[in-house]
Structures are given as C-alpha cells and as structure tokens.
C-alpha cells in the first residue's frame, strides 16, 4: 500500500506528513505527529473527544482522512492557548471546575471555541445542543455549560 504526501497547516505551522489512504486525521495526529492532546474515545464520531477544527469547522478527527487534507488549516488543542496565555475558555474551565477526569476536555474546548466564533452570545440551550456531540461521563455537563456561558460573556466584554 502506498502512502500519500500531505501538506497542511497545523496550529499556524506548516506540517507535512505521509499517510495511508485509510488513515484518519486522528491517527495521523496521535500516532505520526505525536500530538496526543486530541483524544480517542470511540473512533466513530459519537463521543467528540477528538474534536478539532479543520478549515474553520469543528469536526471529529476520527471521521476525516489524512489524505484529503492537502492544503487544509487544522487547529488542535495544542494550539488553543497563545504562547503562555490560556484561552478564556481554558481559564473558565479551570475556574468552574468544568472537568473531572479531563479526557473529554480538549474536545469540549474545541467545540466550544467553534460555537463562540459562530455565536458569541449563545443561550444555555444553544450551548447544550452545540455540545451534544461531546460526551462527558463525569460532570453531568452542568459546570461545562456554565464555563462556556461565562467564557462567552468575558470574550464579548473584551471585544466590545
């Protein structure tokens, strides 16, 4: 089986890799690029732990092939903070104790980031539906939803 050579931008840096046709972005990130912040919870798009942002849209990295990503712009959890400064969502997740085990956290953060870029002032219901593709078994979602709403408020304030 031959491999495909793919050139992408990941978190602002040019990254090229080779992959088999059936290799997913999740496998490329974790196995080949050693970027293990993107988590593998199910491999079937049901848990959202591998949520990354490709060309501006949140997707499950387990449901994207590496081979189709030539020229793509990919954002992962490793690129969420700016230098040593955590993103407001990351800050609020810590302030609100929005994580217990933390395995789902990178996926939730990416999904929440994508949501707030599209909808800076979501209602609780909108947050809940936007995050419905991310499973968390520890928190019962309460503190996650609060953290996202609080981060949204803070981000609105800082841009206004």
């Amino acid at each position: 089986m031959s491999k495909y050579h793919v050139t992408t931008t990941i978190n602002g840096d040019e990254v090229d890799f080779t992959c088999y046709a059936d290799q997913t972005l999740l496998e490329v990130l974790r196995e080949d690029l050693n970027m293990t912040g993107t988590k593998n919870g199910c491999g079937s798009g049901d848990c959202g732990a591998c949520t990354v942002i490709v060309n501006g849209r949140p997707v499950n990295a387990c449901l994207v092939l590496g081979a189709e990503l030539d020229g793509a712009n990919i954002e992962t959890i490793e690129g969420m903070s700016t230098g040593t400064e955590l993103h407001p969502l990351q800050q609020k997740f810590l302030d609100h104790a929005a994580l217990q085990c933390g395995i789902c956290t990178p996926g939730f953060l990416n999904m929440a980031k994508a949501l707030l870029e599209k909808n800076p002032e979501p209602t609780e219901t909108e947050v809940r539906y936007a995050l419905a593709g991310n499973l968390c078994r520890c928190t019962g979602y309460d503190k996650i939803v609060r953290a996202v709403l609080d981060a949204a408020a803070e981000m609105r304030e800082s841009t206004s």
């Binding site: 490709v54 949140p58 499950n60 449901l63 994207v64 593709g133």
Partner: peptide
C-alpha cells in the same frame, strides 16, 4: 444528522 461536528462533514 449527527452532531455539529458531523454536520461539518
């Protein structure tokens, strides 16, 4: 169909 992540694809 599916989550917002799935909707992107």
């Amino acid at each position: 169909i599916g989550s917002d992540q799935v909707q992107g694809r």
